[in-house]
């Protein structure tokens, strides 16, 4: 592994596996009807052999299944003494460093799907609009702990603009 993305001393914390499960369920919920919608009419109206074209969406879905797994494994965050690190991405890798004193706003977001799987996303905002630190797939206790800790550290080390 690339040394830059190697874990810091404290190690990377990964998002909950529920995030991966949620994304894979959504994938299947989209891919299965699409595959069926291709296979059934072609098989019935043209020829059963040609129904094999449905293998194309099925293969795409299988690839996406694996990609989701790799993407999930790429996510990680680490709380250091003075800043928070967030890494993500497989092909395009990103590492974001946000000093605690620079955080203007900590937001916990959970849509209906995320709530169903019992996870939430933590978003960090600094005065810079281009800071893109967000941590998805946090279990509620961890999200609450992180939110409180970041808010506390942010206040303790707060600096002006």
């Amino acid at each position: 592994m690339d040394p830059a993305f190697a874990p810091p001393a404290t190690g990377w914390t990964m998002p909950s596996r529920a995030l991966l499960r949620m994304r894979r369920v959504v994938l299947v919920a989209v891919a299965a009807p699409v595959t069926a919608a291709v296979a059934v009419p072609v098989g019935l109206l043209v020829s059963p052999a040609l129904a094999a074209v449905a293998l194309v969406p099925a293969a795409l879905a299988a690839w996406a299944w694996r990609a989701l797994g790799r993407n999930w494994r790429s996510w990680g965050y680490a709380e250091r003494e003075d800043d928070l690190l967030v890494r993500r991405g497989v092909l395009w890798r990103r590492l974001t460093v946000v000093p605690y004193g620079r955080m203007q706003l900590v937001e916990v977001v959970a849509g209906p799907l995320q709530r169903h799987w019992g996870i939430a996303t933590l978003e960090l905002h600094t005065a810079a609009a281009t800071t893109d630190a967000a941590i998805p797939g946090l279990l509620p206790p961890e999200a609450a702990r992180l939110r409180d800790r970041l808010t506390e550290l942010g206040e303790a080390r707060s600096a002006g603009l």
Binding site: A4, T96, T126, T130
Partner: peptide, 30 residues
């Protein structure tokens, strides 16, 4: 005045052993 620091690396950059570092500020582009 630095708000946050980011390191990004695309697939092509990784092959060449390169990476970019972005420094975010409170006004304008990083």
């Amino acid at each position: 005045k630095v708000q946050s620091v980011r390191r990004t690396q695309g697939p092509w950059q990784r092959r060449l052993g390169l990476a970019s570092v972005h420094v975010d500020i409170a006004a304008g582009d990083p």
